[in-house]
Amino acid sequence: MILDKSWWKYLLAVWMTVVILGAFLYAPPAKGLGETARIIFFHVPTAWLATLAFLISAVGSIQYLRTQEKKYDIWAYSAAQIGLIFAILATVTGSIWAKKIWQSYWNWDPRETSIFILLLIYAAYFALRSAIDIEEQKAKLAAVYSIIAFVTVPFFIFIIPRVYESLHPDPLINPEGEIKMDSRMLQVFINSLLSFTLLFFWMLRLKIETMKIHFKIEQSLSE
């Protein structure tokens, strides 16, 4: 498998360096938002990965309930852990940007509310896991909770910001379905999105492998 080789990791390092340089040097400042718009190259990928991790965690949970195989629980748990990191990053970068544009770090814009709820859900998920001792029980109930939480997310992400007005700019997912972005910005943006996603899968793989080893050691200790 291609991911077992190590050359792509060096490639990713070069790629991300180019993306970071491009974000500051190559892409022009956006209309209206000025230089602060450069945060889009880092903020949007982290927010996207927080959502993707949540999706992977939910799919892992569904698979776990279907098959009762331990590896799917490891998938779900690892994705949630990596997802939490990206959710925090998205919150922090968004908050810094909000301070610059809206003059306050936090003002409960619907987008801020959504990401905060995502953080709460992750926190509740880990709290639930830590409160159950039996492994199978833990995996099963955490999977159920993860699915419940996942199903309520569309209410936050799609319905609430549309019912209540948001100031958050959304150039990619807008009601008209058009991409309103400068072509050079778009190039950097797409590259950033892809390289961050690759980084995410690398992190996820590492996490899953270490979790598997962890469980193997625990099993051999209990035997």
């Binding site: 709460l120 926190a123 509740a124 409160a131």
Partner: peptide
């Protein structure tokens, strides 16, 4: 869910809050 976990009282509010937020907001 929480009836099968320990620390039930604290967990109940923690787990319910994010899920019931759409109800609270609307």
């Amino acid at each position: 869910i929480i009836s099968q976990a320990s620390a039930k009282g604290a967990l109940f509010a923690v787990l319910s809050f994010p899920i019931s937020l759409p109800v609270l907001i609307s």
